[in-house]
C-alpha cells in the first residue's frame, strides 16, 4: 500500500532491453526469427529446392533420415527437410494474413462498440458472440463446402471465426479509455467521434493488440495445420506442415519421420510465437496500458 513510485514510462521504453533479459523471450524471438529467415530464403536453404516445391522423385521413396536426406524422404520421394523449409512460407503467410484480417475487421468494430456503446454496441457484440459460439471447424467445413478446399479458403474460414476476439479485446479497452479525462477532454474540443477513436483511443490500445496478435499467429498456424490435416485446408502438392503430418499418418509406425519432423516444425513455430507473445506482454506491461 505504499505509494507507487512516480515512474510512468511509455510501455515502449526499454522494451528491447527487457526482452533480452529473460531466456524464454530470447528463445521465442530466435524461433520466430528463424522461421521468418527460413521462409524468406527457402530456395537457398533447401537441399532439394524443386522437391521442396513439390516435384516427386520416385527413386528415393520412403528413405530414412541419412546424411543426404537429414529428415528422410516421403512416399513420393521428396526430401522432407526441403518440404519443411518450403512449408514455412504458407505457414507464415496464412497465419499472418488471418491475424491481419481479423485485426482489420475486429479492431474497428470493437472500437465503435466500446466507444459509442448503446444499441450499436449490443448489435456488434451479439454478432461477435454468434461467430464465437460457432465451432470453428464446422465453420471451416461450411466455407470449404461453399468455396472448395484450399489454403486460402481455410484462411477465410479462420478469419471469420477469429475477428470477434479482437472486437472483444478492443471493446473492453475502449470502454475503459472512454471514461479517462484525456478522452473527455478530447470531446470538449468538439472533435468528431471518429477522430477521437483514431487519435486518442486506438493508439492507447496498440500494446495489447500487438501482444494478442503475436500469440494468435501461433494459434492460427496450428489451426490452419489442423484444417489441412483433416483435408479442409491446403491441398497437395502444397508443402504444408499440417498436410505433411496427415500424409505421413498412415506410415507412422514404419516411417515415423514423415509425420514427426513436420509435427516438430509446427510445435517449434507455435512455441516461438507463444513465447514471444508472453515476453511482449511482460515487456509492455499491460498495467501500463493507456497510461
Amino acid at each position: 500500500m505504499s505509494k507507487t513510485p512516480p515512474i510512468a514510462t511509455l510501455p515502449e521504453r526499454g522494451v528491447y532491453r527487457r526482452l533480452l533479459r529473460d531466456g524464454p523471450a530470447v528463445l521465442g524471438f530466435a524461433l520466430v526469427a528463424l522461421l521468418v529467415l527460413v521462409a524468406a530464403f527457402a530456395p537457398l536453404l533447401a537441399p532439394f529446392p524443386e522437391q521442396g516445391a513439390g516435384a516427386a522423385s520416385v527413386a528415393d521413396r520412403n528413405l530414412a533420415p541419412s546424411l543426404t536426406h537429414w529428415f528422410g524422404t516421403d512416399a513420393m520421394g521428396r526430401d522432407i527437410l526441403s518440404r519443411i523449409v518450403y512449408g514455412a512460407r504458407p505457414a507464415l503467410l496464412v497465419s499472418m494474413a488471418v491475424v491481419g484480417l481479423a485485426v482489420l475487421v475486429g479492431v474497428p468494430l470493437g472500437l465503435i462498440a466500446g466507444f459509442r456503446g448503446g444499441r450499436l454496441d449490443e448489435a456488434i457484440m451479439r454478432v461477435a458472440d454468434m461467430f464465437l459460439a460457432f465451432p470453428p471447424l464446422l465453420l471451416a467445413m461450411v466455407v470449404v463446402s461453399l468455396l472448395g478446399p484450399s489454403l486460402w479458403n481455410a484462411a477465410i474460414a479462420l478469419v471469420v471465426s477469429w475477428w470477434p476476439w479482437y472486437a472483444r479485446l478492443v471493446r473492453g479497452l475502449a470502454l475503459s479509455l472512454r471514461e479517462r479525462p484525456f478522452v473527455e477532454g478530447a470531446r470538449t474540443l468538439g472533435l468528431r467521434d471518429i477522430t477521437i477513436m483514431r487519435r486518442h483511443i486506438l493508439p492507447n490500445c496498440s500494446s495489447p493488440i500487438l501482444v494478442q496478435a503475436t500469440t494468435d499467429i501461433g494459434t492460427v498456424l496450428l489451426a490452419a495445420g489442423s484444417l489441412a490435416f483433416i483435408g479442409l485446408g491446403a491441398q497437395p502438392p502444397t508443402p504444408d506442415w499440417g498436410l505433411m503430418v496427415a500424409e505421413g499418418r498412415t506410415y507412422v509406425f514404419s516411417h515415423w519421420w514423415m509425420s514427426a519432423f513436420p509435427g516438430a516444425a509446427i510445435f517449434l513455430a507455435v512455441l516461438g510465437f507463444n513465447l514471444l507473445g508472453d515476453a511482449l506482454r511482460d515487456a509492455l506491461d499491460p498495467r501500463e496500458v493507456g497510461r
Binding site: A186, L189, R291
Partner: peptide
C-alpha cells in the same frame, strides 16, 4: 452541441490522466 463545446473547456485534477500519453 459538439461545436458549442469548444467555447467551454476544462482542466482536470490529475494533469497526467488528462493528457494522451501517446502524444
Amino acid at each position: 452541441l459538439r461545436l458549442l463545446r469548444r467555447r467551454v473547456q476544462i482542466v482536470f485534477q490529475n494533469p497526467h490522466a488528462s493528457l494522451n500519453p501517446r502524444m
